[in-house]
Design a binder for these strands. Structure first.
Lengths: 235, 235
DNA sequence: CCTCATTTGTACGTATGTATC
DNA sequence: TGATACATACGTACAAATGAG
């Protein structure tokens, strides 16, 4: 088992501190030098951790002032790299398996081109519904190539983060991705699962997710009814 | 006038090279060491430039291989930090002023809270329509606080990037921001400007944009009909 | 299978500039 | 003015993945 790199450790540490409210919104984190001392590392390493917090939208930095904690945003941060599970408040999200992982042939990956190797490997396909505080919010369709994933289809993903699952079971780390956004009308299937009326506007997200394993991508399609929560993100 | 930092210069240089097709998709950029030598800087500086290209979705990196250029994605990259103008293909976008910049009182900034100073300063408000290849794609509503922006309302923003404008005229640099996404039905106003039918699903983007000037935010609301182009982004 | 050169990833240390208070 | 804090940039070292031989 490989240790997380130092900058990731501090990142995780600070992230937890912030969401737990150790630093109220508007307050500054300890200075970069202070953090470096406290964690036994140098300033460049701390800065790398902080830059992750910035791109996650947890802090902003002001020259001469410090790293100021942003208030917890209202909405669901699915636009960033964090998976759906950790994007919400986490405690109040339930995952319901609509279609268990099964092997398929690739047809297409949500308008993303599929490489030759991926096509040959075959496709693992499953559908999940995410329920936040009793109301269905996401319909999540996932496709990934069936290469070196022993016993994948026999595991249950009920209430489990796919990204964490891939990391601990198969050593696959998510590194980033591309996404495409559309506004569409709810069709019959979406009406049913997301509990909206016919023709209701729904967000559609097509994502191609890069990983540390070269050539291994996760293709994911998310449908989201934004009546209560908007999707939020930072840039 | 302050020079751009070195890492920004290389970033701009490589970015231009990529969009001009100097490195076809799938090819690797010169190695970090090579770039460092070529541009008279060290590897950390080059790496900073490359990390910008990654977050813009231009390249992916593979350990032991190099920085591989991604194919030009189809869609409009408005989700990232680049303004609307440079998000598109750039040559084929036209800006039509619907409402010229005028002073208003703040009511609300698209569901974002407005600070006391911003409220007191008053609000500059304007609306623009972006037309790509003959079809209207965005309706762009912008609000910004009227502080230390001499003669702003007297300039025309026709076919001009707001971000560039702020940089060269007022020394304000955009550093990032938060956005919120919804799928809505087109109302009367949107039907007219975006040329869609009643009830057509439209993407709504509320953005609060941070700048180098402390406490100065740009609030922007974008409506987008995603019939032809989806919005794309990386993470 | 092993070795080696190349390339990126992580982390160290140092120096100087610039904004804030 | 001085202290503090972040921004930029230098230089170095070793680890880990890749691909060629």
């Amino acid at each position: 088992m490989v240790e997380l790199p130092k900058y990731r450790q501090v990142y995780e540490f600070l992230r937890r501190q912030i969401v737990e409210g150790a630093y109220p919104a508007g307050e500054a984190l300890p200075s970069e030098n202070a953090l470096a001392n406290a964690h036994g590392m140098t300033r460049p390493t701390v800065r790398k951790a902080l830059s992750l917090l910035i791109s996650d939208g947890f802090i902003v930095k002001r020259r001469g002032k410090g790293s100021i904690v942003k208030g917890a945003p209202k909405g669901i941060g699915i636009l960033s790299i964090t998976g759906t599970t950790s994007a919400v408040g986490r405690d109040n999200i339930l995952t319901h398996i609509i279609l268990k992982p099964e092997r398929r042939r690739w047809t297409e990956a949500f308008s993303f081109p599929v490489s030759e190797e991926e096509r040959e490997a075959g496709c693992i396909y499953f559908e999940r519904l995410r329920v936040v505080e009793g109301t269905p919010v996401f319909l999540d369709v996932t496709m990934l190539p069936d290469v070196r994933l022993p016993h994948f289809t026999s595991y249950s993903l009920e209430n489990r983060s796919l990204f964490n699952f891939l990391r601990v079971k198969y050593h696959i780390e998510v590194t980033g991705g591309t996404q495409q956004l559309f506004a569409i009308r709810a069709d019959k299937r979406l009406q049913e699962h997301l509990q909206v009326k016919a023709g209701y506007p729904v967000l559609q997200l097509n994502r191609k997710i890069e990983t540390t394993r070269a050539g291994f991508h996760i293709y994911s399609q998310v449908f989201c009814a934004t009546r209560a929560y908007g999707l939020i993100g930072t840039f």
